[in-house]
């Protein structure tokens, strides 16, 4: 129950919470204390060092964590959840890959560079979105085929709206 696997970027770490404010991190023992400061701010004391962190919960497994100017997407699973996740992941490898690209901010669609059915490489520009007085290149986050384009040139979009999908 208190045995966790934490994923950040491509790294995975094991954290085991023990009783008496002790924990095992990759088999090394630490004393810890978590002090909530206000809404999203915490002090974390690890042995003799104190860290100031900001966090926001996304769902029961995912958090955003800010520490020393570095901002991470963190996924925490119990050891049991991690096992189940790995099983699922292995069976999903052969499955069709599909990705929705959403508007990162409200803006105006200036130009659509690709057509449905066209091939795109990862990092290739697909849509130009004007926001904050700048033209922002929205790039394909994976290589594949444009399955769908849900907006047209000249239309205004809200944040989070799906713009196109790659399959």
């Amino acid at each position: 129950m208190n045995d966790f696997v934490v994923s950040i970027n491509s790294s995975k770490w094991n954290v085991k919470l023990l009783s008496n404010n002790e924990l095992l991190f990759n088999e090394k023992k630490y004393n810890y204390e978590l002090i909530p400061v206000c809404n999203n701010s915490y002090f974390l004391k690890l042995n003799s060092e104190v860290f100031e962190l900001t966090s926001e919960k996304i769902n029961s497994d995912e958090f955003k964590v800010l520490l020393k100017g570095n901002y991470f997407d963190v996924t925490v699973r119990t050891a049991l959840q991690e096992k189940a996740f790995k099983l699922l992941e292995n069976s999903a490898v052969t499955k069709h890959h599909h990705m929705d690209i959403k508007a990162p901010m409200p803006g105006l669609i200036l130009k659509i560079r690709k057509k449905v059915g066209e091939k795109v490489e990862q990092g290739e520009s697909v849509i130009i979105l004007e926001a904050m007085k700048m033209e922002n290149d929205l790039k394909a986050s994976a290589s594949g085929i444009i399955e769908n384009i849900l907006v047209s040139e000249g239309s205004a979009v809200e944040k989070g709206v799906i713009l196109f999908s790659i399959g």
Binding site: V6, L17, F25, Y30, Y32, K57, K68, N70
Partner: peptide, 17 residues
């Protein structure tokens, strides 16, 4: 920094459950 964030997130999850 990743290491400390990992520990922090694990404690948060444990606390919230």
């Amino acid at each position: 920094i990743e290491k400390i964030s990992a520990i922090f997130a694990a404690i948060l999850k444990s606390n919230s459950s």
